[in-house]
Structures are given as C-alpha cells and as structure tokens.
Design a protein around this nucleic acid. Structure first.
Lengths: 190, 190
DNA sequence: ACCTGAACACCGTTCAAGT
DNA sequence: ACCTGAACACCGTTCAAGT
C-alpha cells in the first residue's frame, strides 16, 4: 500500500559524488559507486538525477555555491579594506577552497555537455564579490572584464596546481602572490 | 611467413584521437572510434599505446609540442620588440592555438593519472619563450614565478572561453587584452 | 513515489591464434 | 611484429514489477 519511502535524496547523491570525486577522480564517480555510498541500487539514482552528466553538473553547481559562501565571507571580513587587500583575501579564499576540493574546483568552469551548463545563479553569486573589487580597481565600465581576468588567473593557477603542473621546482606560493599583486597593480593602472 | 605489416602508427593514432576529441569531446575518444579512424580493430591499438589513459596523455603531449612551435614562432617574429609587445604576441599565439584546438588546449595542464604526467621536455620547450619574456619583465630571479602567472592566466582564460563560461555578455576579447596588459604592467612594476 | 532485479548496448582490456 | 575474433568484467541506462 504505502508507496516506497525515499531512501536517499539529491543532496546526498551530490555529496557522495563529490567525495568520490575527490578521493579517486572522475573515473571513480560511477553510478554504481555513488549508489552504494548512499545505500541504494544504481537504477534508483535516475529518480533523482537525469543521467551521469547531469550528476556531474550538479556537483559543479554545488561547488559553486560553496565557493560563493567562502568568497562572500572573505569579502565581508575586509569590507572596508583597500581593494588590493580585499582582492588578496578573495584570491586566498578561492585558493583555500581549491585546496580543500581540488577536483571540484577544476570542474567549476568545465563543460559537461551543451545542455548541461550550470545555472547562472550560483555562478553569479560567487562572482559578485569579485566584480565588486574589480569595480573599485578599474571602474564600473570595465568591472566585468577585470573580474574575468581575476577569475581566469585564479582558476587557471589553482587548476594547474591541483594537476601537479608546476614541476620545475621553485616556490609556488610566491608565484601565486606575485600574480595577485601584479594584477592588483596592473589593473588599477590600466 | 612474413610477419604482419604495421597498418597504423602511434602518430596516426594520436592524430585520430585529437580529431575525435575536438569533434565530439572526451567521450567520443573511444578505443573503438580511434581504431576505426585509423583502419584497425580496437585490440591492435594496444600494440602502440599502453591503455586509453596513456593515449590521452600522448594527445596532450602532442598538443604541447604543437604549442611550443607556435609560441617559438611568435617569439621569433618579435625577437627585438619590447617585452610587453612580445608578451602580447605570445598570449595571442596561445589563444589562437586554443581556438583551433580548444579541447586539446584544455587538456594541456590536466592530470590523467599519477603515472601519466606528460614528459617534461615538450612542456619545457613550450615554456621557454614565456620564461624569456618573464625574465625581461621581472628579472631572472623571478622569471619562473612570472612565467607561471602568465601561463595560469592564459590557460585559465582560454579554458573558460572554450567551455562557454563567460556567460554574462560583454566583450571577451577586451577582457583578454585587459588581462595581458595588466599583467605586463603589473609584473614590470612589481 | 521511489526502489529493485533483470536486461541491453557499449566500453576497455586480455589473450590465443593467425600471418 | 602486428593484426584479429572471441571473451571478460564493468558501466550507463531502461523498464517492468514490487511496495
């Protein structure tokens, strides 16, 4: 009589996917491994998620929402600081997120099928504090362009770092700080 | 009597993989589709390549070699130009490569398994002209750090562009040029 | 309304057998 | 020395049947 009670949920499935991703990479995110982790059989996942690609997109969106919180918090703490200092704090907060969730971070701006773009809302939320600092540095007219520059650098750097692409030795922290400082100075002067 | 003549080769397999990648994304690069494109059955590929992950790594290495040629050529043409101008030319050449081969470019600094790092040689070759401009901008002591900053920005920007991540409208070319100019100015001033 | 077992097409990979 | 057909374990996905 009573219809089957839900044993899992979309948030639980997304969380399972993200933890499997960080533990073993994309190949480890299987409908079977995700199902096992949430205590269900693989076909049941399709009641919560259209297919595997949609699950990956939902994981990326979840990461974007988490990042939005992290960035908003960092911006709030330095609300009255000069823009270069707030930019440094934002970049550091992003990098902290990328180190805690490197594989999720590498997914943030990836493309999982043409129909699977993450919704604009979480991305916009994460972008808000970045656009705000950018506006202070270059003015409102070019704030979007400057925010894209800042995001591209931070995303590129942290993705390369996570992939182990910095293999010629040297101090990686120093390089990150040099980049943030150069962008703060160079954008303000542009 | 006569042992079977080779019907394909590693370069042909890598080229087939790259064209399939650009046409249909990573999911389209299948041992079966690659084999069909080079005119062989799937098991034969394993005489030329250890497994699919190694094929993907070889495709990335091939892209890095192509990029090295493109960058060396751009640097050669502007050998006597001021560093900011040569940097602009290098960034433009990289972006041109990324637009011709967006999915290969997105792979350049990705990680396909811990044992599958691309060999250092092609990466170093591609990095050479970037490190050279970086040295002119910030001095030899910080040239590696500055080259990492430049690469991170360019890789991040072109990856986001290829993934369709710039979705708030605005002029994407302008943003790229703003970033290159800001880095040239900001690094020189640092 | 959600869960499951059974089934399907497909994929990566191995291997013995061909030339 | 490289190629092939057959076989295997696994994966994503569908669907009819359960509660």
């Amino acid at each position: 009589m009573s219809p089957a009670r839900a044993l899992t949920s979309l948030p639980a499935i997304v969380a399972a996917g993200r933890s499997l991703l960080e533990e073993g990479g994309l190949d480890a995110v299987t409908m079977a491994t995700v199902a096992a982790r949430v205590g269900v059989k693989p076909p049941s996942l399709y009641k919560h998620v259209r297919d595997r690609a949609a699950l990956l997109a939902a994981m990326a969106t979840d990461g974007a929402q988490e990042l939005a919180v992290v960035l908003a918090e960092a911006a709030r703490k330095r609300a009255d600081a000069p823009p270069a200092e707030r930019l440094t704090a934002l970049a550091g907060a992003y990098r902290g997120f990328a180190r805690r969730s490197p594989r999720t971070a590498a997914m943030l701006f990836a493309n999982y099928g043409p129909e699977l773009q993450a919704p604009l809302e979480p991305a916009g939320l994460a972008a808000k504090p970045v656009i705000d600092v950018a506006a202070e540095l270059v003015g409102a007219a070019r704030s979007l362009a400057a925010a894209r520059v800042l995001t591209a650098f931070t995303y590129g750097f942290t993705s390369m770092e996570a992939a182990g692409a910095f293999r010629f030795g040297g101090d990686v922290d120093e390089a990150f700080q040099l980049g943030v400082a150069a962008l703060a100075r160079g954008l303000a002067a542009a």
